[in-house]
Each structure stands twice: as structure tokens, then as C-alpha cells.
């Protein structure tokens, strides 16, 4: 009985660890390797800038991502493994978030860390495919969230986190990144 319990715990522990941290392998791919529905979605948006395609894999899921940089703004469009649109993320500045939402996000980050620095903010649009096709002009029917990458210090430990907040600034998800080793840049 004790042995069974240990085996069960051994299986549960890696799953629990996975839920707390974000481990993804990202790889650049050619357009031809992307599912057709994803290619068609991007083609219909008629971007004039170069489109870079990536596949992201973790232990469970595989997603495709198109990244476009136009007029200094980076836009990431994510698809599931079959090429169905999941969401659109556009990099924005802190000032673009309403003051009420900023206040709630700050409150959360100040609770979580002794010191923190926001490294990247993306506004995330999700909804029906037909509505997402118009994300640049009409966001009325879309769900808006904010994905924020934060470098934070707590109990002298510095880590990277990815937060997901609702449009009103309520915390929806928080995952820890693997800390990137920079010894080869510093020494």
C-alpha cells in the first residue's frame, strides 16, 4: 500500500510542477509546415510586413504562432495544433491600459513582490474567428485580457513570471518562467 502511494505521488508531483512553471520549446518553421486554416487566416489579414512562423511545444500542447512587426508594434497570432485561431496578442505600452486596471495590476504585483519590473505587456483578444479578423478596427465583440511578463524579486529570489489579467485587472493566471542564464554575456 505504501509503495503504491509513493508511485502515485511520484506521478502527481511532475504534473503539479508543470502547472506552476512554463516550459516551452519554440522553433521557427516555414509557412508550408503550418496547418492550412492558420495560413488562410493570416493571408486574409493582408499584412504588408514579413510574417514569421513558429511552433511552440510543451509537455501537453502544440501551438502555431505567426509574428508580425509593423510600425514598431509586434503582433502575435496563436493557433491550435489544427490551425484554429486561439487569440491575437499585440504589444502595447503601460500607458495604453486604463488607470483603474493599472491600479489593480499594480496592487497584485506589489503584493507578490518586494521589487518588480514589467518587461512586456500584450493586449490579448479572443472570440469568434469572424470578429478576430477585424481586431485592428473593431474590438467590440472580443474578450480583452492583458498578458504581462514581469521580473520580480521576493525573498531575495529573482524570477520571471507571465501574468494574465482580465480587462478590469483581475488576476486570471500566473506562471513562472525558467530563468535565463546570462553568464556568457556577463563574463
Amino acid at each position: 500500500m505504501k509503495a503504491i502511494l509513493i508511485i502515485v505521488l511520484l506521478f502527481i508531483f511532475p504534473l503539479y510542477s508543470y502547472a506552476q512553471s512554463k516550459v516551452e520549446i519554440e522553433e521557427r518553421i516555414e509557412k508550408k509546415d503550418v496547418p492550412l486554416p492558420a495560413q488562410q487566416f493570416i493571408d486574409s489579414l493582408c499584412f504588408s510586413s514579413k510574417i514569421k512562423w513558429f511552433v511552440e511545444q510543451n509537455y501537453i500542447t502544440k501551438t502555431f504562432e505567426a509574428k508580425i512587426t509593423a510600425n514598431g508594434t509586434t503582433c502575435s497570432i496563436e493557433f491550435d495544433s489544427l490551425g484554429k485561431i486561439e487569440d491575437v496578442e499585440v504589444e502595447i505600452s503601460w500607458k495604453k491600459i486604463s488607470e483603474d486596471t493599472q491600479g489593480k495590476i499594480n496592487e497584485q504585483l506589489n503584493t507578490d513582490f518586494e521589487k518588480h519590473k514589467i518587461k512586456k505587456i500584450q493586449i490579448q483578444y479572443s472570440g469568434k474567428e469572424t470578429d478576430l479578423l477585424n481586431f485592428r478596427t473593431n474590438t467590440e465583440n472580443l474578450t480583452i485580457k492583458y498578458e504581462i511578463v514581469v521580473k520580480g524579486q521576493k525573498e531575495s529570489k529573482i524570477e520571471f513570471y507571465e501574468y494574465l489579467f482580465s480587462e478590469k485587472g483581475e488576476l486570471e493566471n500566473k506562471v513562472q518562467f525558467d530563468f535565463r542564464n546570462t553568464d556568457h554575456l556577463e563574463y
Partner: peptide
């Protein structure tokens, strides 16, 4: 000044 970037994708795996 030192800078680096991965040659495959945006993250160095």
C-alpha cells in the same frame, strides 16, 4: 556591450 540572440526562434533552447 554584449548582445546575443538565438538563431532558431525567439528563445534559446
Amino acid at each position: 556591450l554584449a548582445f546575443d540572440r538565438p538563431l532558431q526562434g525567439n528563445k534559446l533552447n
